[in-house]
Each structure stands twice: as structure tokens, then as C-alpha cells.
Design a protein around this nucleic acid. Sequence first.
DNA 1: CGTATCTTTGAGGGTAATCAAAAAGGGTGG
DNA 2: CCACCCTTTTTGATTACCCTCAAAGATACG
Lengths: 191, 191
Amino acid sequence: MPLGSGRPATFFPAGSEIYAQGDLCASLYQVEFGAVRIYRLLSDGRRQISAFHLAGEMFGFEADKNHHFFAEAICSTGIRILSPSASHVVAELLPMALQSLVRAQEQLLVLGRQNAVERVAAFFLEMSERQGGLRQVELPMSRLDIADYLGLTIETVSRVFSKLKSKGVIRLPSLRNVEIVKLQTLQDMAA
Amino acid sequence: MPLGSGRPATFFPAGSEIYAQGDLCASLYQVEFGAVRIYRLLSDGRRQISAFHLAGEMFGFEADKNHHFFAEAICSTGIRILSPSASHVVAELLPMALQSLVRAQEQLLVLGRQNAVERVAAFFLEMSERQGGLRQVELPMSRLDIADYLGLTIETVSRVFSKLKSKGVIRLPSLRNVEIVKLQTLQDMAA
DNA sequence: CGTATCTTTGAGGGTAATCAAAAAGGGTGG
DNA sequence: CCACCCTTTTTGATTACCCTCAAAGATACG
């Protein structure tokens, strides 16, 4: 049984804020359906998305009393808000924190040492894995979100998509759906 | 009283391995003196250092049973090895994990969205802060380590050092010592 | 003092960013 | 259902930043 099932979920329309940088950390959150982006901003507006959260995943715990990040619904999203003091939540804190840490560290390697093609390939594989390892991958986020997650520009992301498509590595049945055609090639590309 | 004080420390010479990727996670580690680098490798040898650990800091906890990273002593280093089951260690796990998460997420912003000058400036400020906020900062690591931490090449790191020096923002009393002369300028540069 | 390693500096090239515009998609109202 | 508009995405041309390759200079160590 998933954490907090039975509690009501709150609905967030696409683009709406779940919490902002500076807000008090009052709760934990679990995605019921939809998707969430976690990000920071530089003073000149540059944005780095540090994580996406998909259905079933939890987020919202931070080291400080106040949030250092923004959280927004990417699309229509249902969120369960959990009291952080509930014992069954407390028990999950450490595993969740470690999971987030692994993801962040994985992302450090991508941002620090991989080129554009490798970043996009790694992104497709990550999204596929998190959606059950299927070849049909849904991308709830825009190209701009993907760019800000991968440390690239939207144009570069688009160009790499086109390149992988023309090479027959992926297909794009629609803007927000990717089909992985040559899995092995994609894995090789991710280095 | 620091964690595990009274237990003997193990000595690691410069460059020696503390644990390797794939090793079982058997312990937690606390730096007594010296410094440690935590890193991953890509198959072609590209290296990303995800963290440095200085005196007093702990490391070695991971989400999996096996280490996903390498840990090496940067210079002559003393390490206390702690049993992860000791109650006073267990109590520290969550705060430590969250602290590591914050650092990793901070680094994501640097690697994803900042240019070479901003990265180096942020690095100096981070090292200064972690050494008590002094203007005299010691760099136990080589230029190559710094480059692999900041996602740059050694040449670019060296050029930025020279540029900041020529602008009078920093002084370099020796290779491994930096003096922050114009703190405000450095902070502005870090964006 | 000599050698090996690390760091700095220089020249040139490549990848991704920027600037710009066309194309595609999505939503609304007629 | 279709036409229109606005937003997102794609594609193209050019620029800029950082990487690569190369060599000189500095530092550490035996």
C-alpha cells in the first residue's frame, strides 16, 4: 500500500506553484498523477531543474527549515500532502533522501562530463527506466524543461532530438511521446 | 564532542584508495585531517568529482549496498572508520544525507548553468566558507581535481585563476593557497 | 642537482549558445 | 468542424566559449 493512500489529494493545474524558494518546509508531497519540476533560479533568470518527479514519487524534504527550491506542477497534477511527523513518513525519510542523492549525483556526472547527445540519450534512458522500462516513453515536460534539466538550450535539445530521429534511434509519434527504436545504440550513446 | 572521538584513525597516504566503486558499503567515514575526493568514472576515463570532504566531515553512506563511487585521499589523510550500526551514528545519517543532497543540488546549478569564471568563483567561495569564512583559503587538491569537480579542463581552470589574479580579485601566495582580495567582486562573479 | 610531475600559457578548432525566422501544435471562438 | 491566433518547436546562420593540442615554466622529490 502506498504511503498516505486514503488521504485526499490536492489538484494543481499545469504550471501552478506547489511551493516556492523561501517557503517554510511544512509538509512532504507525493505525486498521485501528473509530474512536478524542482528548480532553482539564478538572479539573471537562468534556471536549473534539479529533478522531475513522476507519479508515485515523493519530494519536498530539504535540509533547512525553508525551501531552497521551487516546485511546480508540469501538467495537471494530483499531490498528496503528508504530515512529516507521521511515523510511517518518518521511516521513509532516509531512503527517500538517499534516493534523491543518488539521482543528483548521477546528474552531476551528466552535467559535468557529458556532451549534448550523451545528455539527451541518458535522459531518454532515465525516463524509460522510471516508466517501467518500456520503449514508449511519455515526456510530460516541455523542451524548455528538458533543456533546463540537462544544462542545454532548447535549440540544442531540439537538434539532438532531430538527429536521433533521423538516425532511426528514436521515433517521435507526437511531441511528448518518444519511442526508443534502437535501445542498444541509445545506451552506447549515453556512454 | 565529535562523532566517534576516541576511536583510532586510519592513515591514508596521498592518492590512496579508501573504497572503490562496487565495494560493499561496510562503514561510515569521518575525516580527521587531510581531504578526500569522491568521484565516478565514465568508461572512457572522464572523471566527475562529486564532492570533496575536509576535516570533520563524514562520507561513505550510499543508497545501495555497494558503493557507486570511488573515495581517495587527496593528501595525507586520517580517517575514522565508524560502525554504521552504532546508535549515535544512525542518528546522524539523515542530517548527513540531507547535507550531501544540498551540496549536490548546489553543484547541479553550477555545472548546468554557470560559465567557467562563475564556477571557479563559486568554488573559491565554497572552500572559503567551509574553512571558516577566512580570506586565506587552502586548496588541498590539484588543478586537475578542481577541473574534474567543476566540469572544466585543467587549462581552463588555470586560465581563470590567472585572470582573477591579474584582475586583483585573488592572490596566489603559493600554488595551493588562495587569498580572496576582493570578496564582493568574487561574489558578484559567482552570480 | 637532475628528473618527473604539475601548472601555465599560447594557438587553433569544435561544440553548443545566440540570434533569427519558419513550421508545427494547441486552444478558442465562430 | 474549421479558421484563426498564440505558443512551442524546429531549423538555419553566425558567434563565442571552452576544449584540444602543444610547449614552456614552475614545483616537488629523490
